[in-house]
Design a protein around this nucleic acid. Structure first.
Length: 494
RNA sequence: GGCAUCAUGGCCGAGUGGCUAGGCAGAGGUCUGCAAAACCUUCUACAGCGGUUCGAAUCCGCUUGAUGCCUCCA
């Protein structure tokens, strides 16, 4: 019996601007597409937030027993800034700066992306297709769009006729824009443009002589327009209509709007049932961005080598921090907020470790079943991780009370409490128990400290407090804190 | 300029008409040789002004402020 039969998800659909009950096209199976990174530089924390938001969605759907096909692309084809009219291709630009072949640039940053996501303990998607690997599919869509009358060729480039599309479709329905307003408000001078209207976008762009990334096509040696790859790859792997399409809020317009236009014009049907948009991670109150430099890289966060934070933070703490805010809210990245999350996270982990020390009774004084469902209700309500985490802290409070003997619990309920805590913390949130240690060096250190604790306890028993306090204080100096508890002394590395 | 979104206690951050999350910090307590740690308790907020309502942080209007998109960006 799959969990999803009893847990009803409501999710916020950007297209309808409201929460809707989630019903997949095929019962028990979910198709989800998420726009991945453009690999011309290291992913920054802002990029990571989006991918971690959808990792949570992926993990929760899987937890509920759905068979999920999660497709997240790698944009490795160079696209021009300014809609292909002029400007630079970021991948080519980077290749020049680093004196690398464009595909070397792509490889380098794809590897970085994968390593980073692995550090965050994000699950890899089911399929991770690349734009350059799907040129043929993209050309096929362009041909189809021309045939349907929505694409027109000019000097070897092909553009999408937004005005024509808008005559019998609603261009702008996702981002809440009216084409008339866009035309009225446009500042662009249409003088030297190949496009019929400034709102039109490139489907295929003829390569200038200096443009290295190029492929043959019926129209010219060139490269695909920037919105095409997602339409091609989502259609190929998930079908003409699929369940969930996700991405960062900043992709809503024009990227996702154009995806809808391309799909509707070529397939005559709406491509996506539920559009999900993750909100931005800000720094100093401003959106993190590759181009403006207002960002922090994961590596800088983990090492502590940056001007923003006072100390280093582990990937799991950073993730926990992000999940303490809802994915649709803007979240500001700051040292104080991270420190607060770190302390909270450690408290949660301590409680989890205490589970083993709880003894059971005949009856429970706690209502574990209700608490458990509250955890599910939180996630069912548009993946509300902050509420879930609040309930997990409630669970931690239960554990502490049980440990103190202030509450009682039956063996069945204890099992339920433990399973639920573990399921949400590790399977759904994908957090990692960094205190668990386990490597050889850590074990040796642990043995040495145990010895010191023993010596200190002997000194204390003999009321030789000078010795015992020296041990305690010197260890504190090197970053090892002793914690005297009721059942003996433990330690933690700070 | 256009289109959106947001404004919550010392800080971070949920919550969308009455039952008033959670974390951090602060305060008090338990424990302890002392301390730290840990645990417990506690602090009761919703930008301003007006309106709707028996009742609004939550709905409507205006004002102020911030942010996002309209150029590549998660």
């Amino acid at each position: 019996m799959s969990l999803y039969k009893n847990q009803n998800i409501q999710l916020y659909n950007s297209l309808t601007k409201q929460k809707e009950p989630f019903t997949p096209i095929h019962e028990g199976a979910v198709g989800m597409y998420v726009c991945g990174p453009t690999v011309y530089s290291n992913v920054h924390m802002g990029n990571c937030r989006t991918f971690l938001s959808f990792d949570l969605v992926f993990r929760y759907l899987k937890h509920l027993g759905y068979k999920v096909r999660y497709v997240r692309n790698i944009t490795d084809a160079g696209h021009l800034e300014n809609d292909g009219e002029s400007g630079d291709d970021p991948i080519l630009k980077k290749a020049r700066i680093e004196q690398l072949e464009p595909m070397e640039v792509v490889q380098k940053y794809t590897v970085d992306f994968h390593e980073t996501m692995a550090k965050f303990n994000a699950l890899p998607p089911s399929i991770e297709p690349t734009a350059t690997g799907h040129i043929i599919e993209q050309i096929a869509i362009v041909e189809k769009l021309i045939k349907e009358g929505y694409g027109y060729e000019k000097n070897g480039s092909v553009y999408f006729d937004v005005v024509k599309f808008n005559e019998d479709h609603a261009y702008g329905k996702l981002s809440g824009r009216q084409l008339e307003d866009m035309i009225t408000n446009t500042r662009e001078l249409a003088a030297q443009s190949e496009k019929k209207n400034p709102q039109d976008f490139a489907l295929w762009k003829k390569a200038e002589p200096q443009h290295i990334m190029r492929w043959p096509s019926p129209w010219s040696e060139g490269f695909p327009g920037w919105h095409l790859e997602c339409t091609a790859m989502s259609t190929k792997y998930l079908g003409e209509t699929f369940d969930i399409h996700g991405g960062g809020m900043d992709l809503k317009f024009p990227h996702h709007e154009c995806e809808i236009a391309q799909a509707e014009a070529s397939n005559h049907k709406s491509p996506v049932n539920y559009w999900l948009h993750a909100n931005m991670l800000t720094l100093n109150g401003k959106k993190m961005s590759k181009s403006t430099g207002n960002n922090i890289l994961p590596g800088e966060l983990f090492s502590g080598e940056n001007d923003i934070l006072k100390k280093a933070f582990t990937p799991t703490v950073a993730k926990f921090f992000m999940y303490q805010a809802h994915y649709r809210s803007i979240l500001d990245f700051s040292n104080d907020a991270l420190e607060a999350s770190e302390k909270g996270f450690n408290r949660l982990m301590d409680a989890l470790h205490s589970l083993a020390e709880i003894s059971t009774s005949e009856n429970s004084s706690l209502d574990i079943a209700t608490w458990k469902q509250a955890c599910y209700d939180a996630m069912n309500d548009d993946f509300n991780s902050p509420i879930l985490i609040a309930h997990l802290f409630e669970g931690a409070k239960y554990i502490n009370a049980l440990k103190e003997g202030k509450e009682t619990i039956s063996a069945t309920d204890l099992q339920e409490l433990s399973t639920t805590m573990h399921a949400f913390i590790f399977d759904v949130l994908g957090l990692e128990d960094t205190q668990a240690g386990g490597d050889e060096a850590a074990e040796k250190l642990s043995g040495a400290i145990e010895l010191l604790i023993e010596l200190r306890n002997k000194a204390r028993a003999n009321k030789d407090f000078a010795t015992s306090d020296t041990i305690r204080d010197e260890l504190q100096e090197v970053g090892i804190q002793l914690k005297d508890g009721k059942d003996g002394t433990t330690f933690s590395l700070s």
